[in-house]
Amino acid sequence: MVGALALGALALGLAQAGRLPGALGETVRGNLAADREATALFYTEVDGWADWLNPASASVSSPRSDQPIAKWP
């Protein structure tokens, strides 16, 4: 009984991690906002993994626009 309560408390605490101030809270809020697969064990568990295979064709903008942009070989 005590163990089940501890498990429930841990789950409840982690479910509220997005409310924490600081780095952990910021990360969790970012993941929540983007609906990211933060628990994936393998790449195929991440939604849209097949898009990674053609990164050059993805519509992304470089965060460093002063750098030359090369396609993936």
Partner: peptide
């Protein structure tokens, strides 16, 4: 892998990819 996707995305879209 999931943590990589999450951590990489904190640096921006390109870095995440």
């Amino acid at each position: 892998t999931g943590a990589v996707v999450a951590a990489g995305a904190m640096l921006g879209e390109d870095a995440g990819q």
